[in-house]
Design a protein around this nucleic acid. Structure first.
Lengths: 242, 242
DNA sequence: AAGTGGTCTAGACCACCAC
DNA sequence: TGGTGGTCTAGACCACTTG
């Protein structure tokens, strides 16, 4: 629906480099997860310097078209995962249903106490016992999010003894008979900083989406608070209201 | 709830510059919408170059802590607007209720035809008449979003004759008796590019949030498709499900 | 007119990864 | 070990905004 066109006559060099790469991606010359030529080669091809080339790459990264992996290079971004945070859902099933390969790693499980930050968000009292779970999740081998999950051990006795490399939602339903109700979801775009950036394996400052979700059971009892740090190009949020 | 701490011993210079500025903002030495010292002065203060200083500023911008305004300088970001896209709501009332000052500008209104992109999203047929409205909205004098709104003139006869510098939602309800139902919302983080970037007055590549919303009336008839381009630091999305 | 950010050059050294 | 991105220097000119 876009009729107005850029005056592309005298656009800055870094935007012309961006457009050149974007066109190659659009044409299918560069397909998802393939590596781009190195920054030095791209600079040479466009008769410019690495600084300018990196400006162009940063633009494409900000648009979600390419991503970097450690120091291995720049890669074409795959399609965004469609994510419906209002649904009870299994990450693995959702990823699989979209033709991708999921993976989950539990980073650590800690029995600790509710602090004031968590208390205001969950209704728990400061000092109440809480189980803190950290996980990293991947799509097609690429880590796309890390999450902090805070579980209420009063409602979920023995929860810390389970294996968390699977669907938490199924575990809650099958082992504890929990039907989640009354979700409060908040999200905003922000940069990933340490320790989340290093947990995902990206440079600090990489664009991300911060999502929190507070879930209660049918009785209004607090069950779970989830704090997710996504790579910004990895997902598209969908919400339906009737 | 963050126990693990960064090894801050040998962090890169640009992160130390970032941390220094972030600390000043956190302490309240720099308050929302105040200007930061110029890049050249910051570079001198930290005994480095503009390139490194700009890396630090870009980090803070990505985190949503500062923003830039044309070539006027860098400013401390105000708090994010809380935005509940599932609600029927008035931008102006929402902004006002949060103690801020809203403004709306209609950029143009065009009677045109449904194209294939819009048809697949709305259920209209290609070639059906559609009214296309572009608006820019501000908070406290800062443009924070531009939007394309596509209205169904079959359901809303004469809609193109109204003044749109006010709440569209109220107009629909009061003049056409429309109660919106069945919203489909989709959103993802991406960079703002032209023409949206220039419409907001930011550099192409500035981080943004893309939001679409398709609304129908109680009979399931398509009423409105809204496409919003937000500055990424201007909002926090909230959704509640029961 | 002076100052700001926007763009760009032509190099350099380092940490890390793959071979 | 060679190539990658990550960080950094010390400049330059330009477009635009503000006084």
């Amino acid at each position: 629906m876009q009729e107005r066109v850029d005056e592309e006559s005298v656009s800055p060099l870094y935007l012309r480099v961006r457009d050149h790469l974007a066109a190659q991606i659009a044409k299918g010359l560069l397909t998802p997860n393939t590596r781009l030529p190195s920054e030095r080669i791209l600079a040479e091809e466009h008769d410019t310097t690495r600084v300018t080339t990196r400006l162009a790459l940063a633009q494409l990264e900000a648009e979600g078209r390419i991503y970097r992996s450690n120091r291995r290079g720049w890669f074409v971004s795959p399609p965004r995962l469609i994510y419906k945070p209002t649904h009870d859902y299994s990450f693995s099933e959702n990823v699989t249903a979209q033709g991708r390969v999921p993976a989950t790693e539990t980073l650590d499980v800690t029995s600790t106490q509710t602090n004031s930050w968590l208390a205001t968000r969950t209704g728990m009292a400061v000092g109440d016992p809480i189980v803190w779970l950290r996980r990293r999740r991947q799509i097609d081998g690429r880590p796309v999010l890390v999450e902090n999950i805070y579980l209420n051990p009063k409602r979920l006795p023995g929860i810390e003894t389970y294996n968390f490399d699977r669907s938490l939602w199924k575990l809650l339903r099958e082992q504890y008979g929990v039907e989640l109700r009354g979700k409060q979801i908040e999200m905003y775009p922000t940069a990933l900083v340490d320790p989340q950036a290093s947990a995902i394996g990206v440079t600090a400052g990489t664009a991300g989406l911060y999502v929190t979700r507070c879930s209660r059971d049918a009785d209004g009892c607090f069950v779970e608070f989830d704090e997710e740090f996504w790579l910004h190009d990895a997902l598209s949020i969908q919400v339906e209201v009737s």
